[in-house]
């Protein structure tokens, strides 16, 4: 913990968000949980001797083996080790979360910056489109888009991102609108700096902290939504594992084979909670 704190402390300005977070035990705890989940997913093949089962190869002899020293999370209906399945499922679920947030930020931020800086009819058009996108219930819209595009990892990520970007547009626009009137922006305009450079050099760097807060908070929900789409069969297709899809398949065997839904469910729970706690802390540190 102290090593971590020192590493943080030496690398960031005294009043920056990371520097403040190191005084927050909950932030450090949730950061460590997140880090553990990411590392476990990244190094999944090294953490289990049953990597092939994790990726989907059946092992019928051990069908529904309960949790034991051999299978700490038990085995599923095809005899695959659930610990390996959850490890490899983490790759899909976490990647889904990051991809969704990344794409949403990528779409939402420039739109919000342009709307806020340009104002007038440009602002009007962008924000009305944003309002329309926000008018749909997000999960329903994501389901519709995913169903239209066909079930796959990428399509599910696109579907969720398409329902999420408006939040980033709103956040960034609100920031840019207040920053636009600041003397340092005016001073750049008087010097003849063009609009694009003003947005990139003067506005975005000062508008990003609430985006980072929102993105951290959203990572948890993105994983959850990704799991929901997989649960409905609109995400990753078997045999590739995904936490949502594991829960979906396993729920049929509950409560007799309780371990099948419990461990992937716990993974979703841990990831969502840790990202949300981290997001809350980042938000507190930002104010």
């Amino acid at each position: 913990m102290t090593i971590l704190a020192r590493w943080f402390g030496s690398r960031f300005a005294p009043d920056s968000i990371p520097a403040r977070l190191r005084h927050d035990p909950l932030a450090i705890f949730s950061f460590l949980v997140v880090l553990t989940l990411i590392l476990a997913a990244a190094f999944a093949p090294l953490l289990t001797s049953r990597a092939a089962e994790g990726l989907g190869e059946p092992n019928p002899v051990e069908k529904f083996a309960p949790p034991s020293a051999e299978h700490i999370f038990g085995a599923d209906h095809l005899g695959r080790d659930l610990y390996a399945r959850v490890l490899f499922g983490g790759r899909t679920s976490l990647a889904m979360g990051f991809l969704v947030v990344f794409v949403a930020v990528l779409i939402g931020t420039p739109l919000g910056a342009v709307a806020g800086y340009a104002g007038g009819w440009v602002d009007e058009i962008i924000m009305r489109v944003t309002d329309i996108a926000l008018a749909f219930p997000p999960l329903l819209l994501a389901i519709t888009i995913a169903a239209a595009l066909g079930p796959s990892f990428t399509n599910a990520a696109i579907a969720i991102a398409l329902t999420w970007w408006p939040w980033y547009t709103r956040i960034v626009r609100a920031q840019v609108v207040t920053l636009r009137e600041r003397p340092f922006v005016e001073s750049a305009r008087i010097m003849g700096v063009n609009g694009f450079t003003i947005i990139v050099r003067h506005l975005l760097p000062n508008a990003l902290s609430p985006v980072i807060v929102q993105a951290t908070l959203d990572l948890g929900s993105a994983i959850l939504t990704g799991a929901a789409l997989s649960f409905l069969g609109l995400g990753v297709q078997p045999p590739t594992p995904d936490w949502g899809q594991l829960v979906s398949t396993g729920r049929v065997y509950f409560p007799d084979r309780w371990w099948y839904v419990t461990f992937p469910g716990l993974a979703i729970f841990a990831a969502t909670l840790a990202f949300n706690l981290l997001g809350d802390s980042v938000q507190d540190a930002n104010t």
Partner: peptide, 15 residues
């Protein structure tokens, strides 16, 4: 060119 009253507001904070 213009020089404003408060340099902390007129100079871009992150540059």
């Amino acid at each position: 060119a213009i020089v404003y009253q408060n340099p902390y507001l007129s100079l871009s904070p992150r540059l």
